[in-house]
Amino acid sequence: MAGDVLRRRPRGRAGSAGGLARLLAHTDPVALIGIALSVSLSVTLDLTNAATGVESLLAGLMGITISLLVDSLARAERRFHLRTLLEGPPWLVQAVPSLVTAAREAVEAHPGSRVAEEARRRFERFRAETEQLRAGRIIRPGEDYEDLFAGLRGCVRSMDAVTHVVPRPRGELSWWRGDVGRGYWAANLRALERGVRITRVFVHAGISDELSELVETQRRAGVRVGLLRWGAVRPDLHVNLALWDATSAWEPTMSAHGEISLNQFSVNAGDLERLRGAFAACAREATYR
């Protein structure tokens, strides 16, 4: 029995120390400073005989009380702020606590390890991606064309597009001949059947037989096709793009070989204004068949 008591005592002291550490960690710094100053004031008044023992004690207690009141107000403000942050769709409110808890426990269970570092990196990546969503943008890898197809499916009035025909390792029109390009052209045909007006400007360095055949195929299907020689507009206007009903847009990031490395879907007002300007400049200079 005595052995059990002896074994429990260290755990009790450790628990008290841990509880004190957690208390200090969650106490507002202003309150901690106020408590320290209050204790110092009480001791100073007592040692210098500037006040009686009772008066110095009361002064210290008053300062501590005010400091704790400040801490209580700060805690209440934090709780109110957290409740405000968690207002929103049910899926968000339900997911955030478990998400934060899982990340915190990963860091606490494996401190200093690759797991803890990866948890931090993933949260940073999640924060950056969420900031893009906040700005009205969805960014996906180059092989993911989900938003390009979704934007065209949701289009009801018009689609304006600029497509650059550039040399590629697999051929300048390899994208259109591939699975994605063929599926995208099929989606164009369905949009035309719905009554969507499609205008596409091909920017080229020279008209090949292959390009002429593609242009003629799209023209016969009902697409208004324009041809624009490379260099006819400013370099900053040379962007691939698709605008749907002037309310959403797609813009890829291209590699040095003309391959798509990133897909960006946007409803951001600044992006839409920039892309509408780029399309208008290309459309003015293009020749139509």
Rank of each mutant, 00 (worst) to 15 (best):
Q132R: 11
D236V: 06
G142H: 13
Y184S: 02
V239L: 15
R168H: 04
L41Y: 03
L243E: 02
S266C: 07
V70I: 12
A150V: 04
I35V: 13
L227F: 11
L133M: 09
A280G: 02
M254R: 10
V203C: 06
E131Q: 11
T253W: 15
C282Q: 01
P90N: 06
V201W: 01
C282S: 06
W244K: 03
R224C: 04
T65Q: 13
V30N: 13
T217N: 14
V100Q: 02
V54C: 05
I66R: 09
L20P: 04
S266P: 03
A109V: 03
S72V: 05
E118C: 07
I64M: 14
L58D: 04
R200D: 02
R284E: 14
L24M: 15
A31F: 06
V93T: 12
R121Q: 14
R289D: 14
I139P: 00
R7I: 11
E251A: 15
E124W: 09
Y288L: 06
G19R: 09
F202M: 02
E105C: 13
C282P: 00
V165A: 00
G142W: 02
G136F: 06
L92I: 06
S40M: 12
W176H: 14
V156P: 00
R9M: 11
A278S: 10
D71K: 00
H164S: 12
R120W: 08
D46P: 00
R125V: 12
A232C: 10
E55F: 13
G195R: 06
A186N: 09
V201K: 00
R140Q: 08
Y288I: 09
V107T: 05
I260R: 15
A280E: 14
V233D: 04
L45D: 01
S174N: 05
M159T: 01
R125A: 15
R229A: 10
G222C: 00
L99P: 01
G18N: 10
L86N: 10
A283L: 03
E77H: 08
P89W: 05
F202N: 00
R7Y: 11
A269L: 11
S72I: 00
G3M: 10
R137P: 01
E172C: 04
R8T: 07
P235L: 05
E77G: 05
R122C: 12
I35E: 00
Q132M: 11
T199Q: 09
A269F: 09
R134N: 13
R224A: 03
W176A: 03
P111T: 03
E193N: 09
E118K: 11
I198M: 08
R276D: 02
E105H: 07
R157L: 07
D4V: 11
V165L: 02
L24D: 12
N188I: 05
R200P: 01
G258P: 01
L211D: 04
V107C: 05
A59E: 07
F202H: 03
H204L: 02
A50K: 14
M62P: 00
N268P: 04
V43T: 05
V70P: 03
F265Y: 15
V96W: 08
L6F: 15
V5C: 10
R9W: 11
H26I: 07
L152K: 00
G258W: 05
R125K: 14
F202P: 01
L61W: 09
